[in-house]
Amino acid sequence: MDNPSLMRYSRHILLDELDIAGQETLIQSHALIVGMGGLGCPAALYLGASGVGKLTLVDHDTVDLGNLQRQIAHKESSIGQPKPESVRDSLLAINSELEVHTINAALHGEQLAAAVADADIVLDCTDNLASRFALNEACVSKAKPLVSGAAIRWEAQISVFHPSAGGACYQCLYKPDNQTNASCAESGVVAPLVGIVGAMQALEAIKILTNTGQSLRNRLLLLDAKTMRWREMALQSDPLCAVCGNSKVNAAE
């Protein structure tokens, strides 16, 4: 690590849990972030600023005026631009040493599986259930940790799903047949809430990549932003889960 890097990441290096070795791990890591909206913007900015050296940004949408209330990596000058490219520009303005790849499309099937397989960690920052279930299935198949966040109206949640390391996957918690797909476009969301959750997703990713502290694996945090009260639920794997129920996982918390 050269002198400019030592200066850039000095606040991380001062932390005993990270130090130079942890920062070098981040620099060599690859995060896949799916969804460049309210969650993906702060998650990407914090991961890039923290020095996660390779970022792959995925979204099929373009920036519009209604995004700017909460999607903080985009600017008025970004309107009409593909969201991954807009976020890439913001990231490189903060940290020009990053390797940033953009995918201006929705990923499905083999393309999604290949993108997941190439990453060290995956962040689900999407806003629709079909994408969440597909991303979860790909992460289980490729044994990749999945940091999942969601926010709508004044409510939010975050967890980590990694059955190959022991515990539940997203589909152990939510079943496709029992869900309704409410969106922020239909229901609204208070702007700072997505920032809170996106930043927490970045933090969980950093902890997992550097093997620091205790992640949210097998724990679901729920936030009521109107009262600023958190609740925590313990999660257990579902032995009948269609996605991970047949996995032979012997790891324990």
Rank of each mutant, 00 (worst) to 15 (best):
C184A: 12
A73T: 01
L123C: 10
F133C: 09
D224P: 08
A119Q: 11
Q69A: 12
K207P: 14
S96N: 03
S159D: 09
D2W: 04
D61F: 02
S183L: 02
Y9F: 08
V63S: 07
E137Y: 01
Q28R: 15
M228D: 12
M36S: 04
T56R: 06
R8N: 12
R153H: 11
D19M: 05
S5H: 09
G213S: 07
L92E: 00
Q71M: 10
S86T: 10
P82D: 06
S131D: 05
Q157T: 13
T126V: 07
G40L: 05
V140T: 10
P145W: 12
M36Q: 01
E97D: 12
A251V: 06
M200R: 14
I27K: 15
S247C: 12
S78K: 04
G37S: 11
E204Q: 15
A225W: 11
S131V: 05
S86Y: 07
V100E: 02
R132S: 09
L193R: 00
T180V: 11
R231I: 08
M1P: 09
N250M: 03
L129V: 02
D238Q: 04
P82Y: 05
E99I: 07
E253T: 05
L32F: 06
A168Q: 06
H162Q: 09
P42A: 07
V63D: 06
N218D: 11
G167I: 12
D2Y: 10
V147P: 06
N246W: 08
L135V: 00
I20E: 15
G66H: 06
V34M: 06
N178H: 04
K75M: 10
R132M: 01
A185F: 01
P42F: 07
L55E: 07
L65W: 06
D224I: 03
L173S: 00
S247E: 13
G66P: 02
Q23V: 15
S148N: 14
I72N: 03
A168R: 06
Q214Y: 10
V87E: 03
A119E: 04
A252N: 10
H12R: 00
S10G: 06
I208T: 02
V140Q: 14
I152S: 00
K54M: 08
D177Y: 13
L18M: 13
C244A: 02
R153M: 02
L235W: 05
V160E: 08
I121H: 08
P192W: 06
G66F: 01
A105V: 00
V194R: 00
L92N: 00
H60T: 03
D120Y: 13
W154N: 04
L32Q: 10
I121G: 11
I33K: 01
D177N: 14
G35C: 11
E186C: 05
A165M: 11
S148T: 13
A156G: 15
L47I: 05
L18W: 07
L235G: 02
G149Y: 01
M7D: 11
L223F: 14
Q157K: 11
E155Q: 13
S10V: 08
Q236S: 15
A234C: 01
N250K: 09
V197I: 15
T56F: 03
P145F: 01
V160G: 05
S77A: 13
Y174L: 14
E110S: 12
L26N: 11
